[in-house]
Design a protein around this nucleic acid. Structure first.
Length: 155
DNA sequence: GCCAACGTTGGC
DNA sequence: GCCAACGTTGGC
């Protein structure tokens, strides 16, 4: 079992949007970074836990927990010229980009804001907290997840 | 809106 | 394969 942090801009797709979907399931389309793609394609497994992070907003932070619900499949939005995620280099033979199914797992009583996350030395190693990092899908160490879950979520 | 950090592109 | 230019991310 692995742990991940996945960023979404809440004005595009928020944790609440995920929770409100009829089956609470979405495909994580639109990733156009190779390192993030490779995590989805090569390292994610069904059942992995996701910290759902809101970025590019007034109060960035972790807003809920989700779960990887199956293997990566081609992200065909790359083939669609009408899509915001269109990539002219993608072809039907090699769609180039993938997406994973992500399912709602658990909501939080309160979001854990970036500002708060920065105050705990126990998780100062998190990639999210390193200056200049901006990868939209990041692995989270078990020790980091345990601290966040046991100390900041489960009470 | 600013801007630092970083990834990608493309000429050579 | 190098690396400068460019575009994007994302907190502030």
């Amino acid at each position: 079992m692995k742990y991940w942090l996945m960023k979404s801009e809440p004005h595009v797709f928020s944790f609440e949007d995920l929770q409100r979907l009829p089956n609470q399931l979405t495909f994580w389309e639109g990733v156009r970074n190779y390192q993030a793609r490779n995590f989805m394609r090569d390292e994610m497994r069904t059942g992995d836990i996701v910290l759902f992070y809101h970025s590019s907003c007034a109060t960035p932070g972790i807003y809920g927990l989700a779960q990887i619900d199956g293997p990566a499949i081609p992200d065909l939005t790359a083939l669609d010229p009408a899509s915001d995620y269109f990539d002219p280099r993608a072809t039907r033979e090699n769609p180039r980009w993938v997406m994973v199914p992500v399912r709602f797992f658990r909501d939080l009583q309160h979001p854990i804001l970036l500002k708060e996350l920065r105050t705990y030395p126990e998780i100062a190693t998190m990639r999210l907290l390193q200056p200049g990092q901006r990868l939209s899908i990041q692995p989270v160490l078990a020790s980091e997840f345990d601290f966040i879950f046991n100390r900041l979520i489960a009470q």
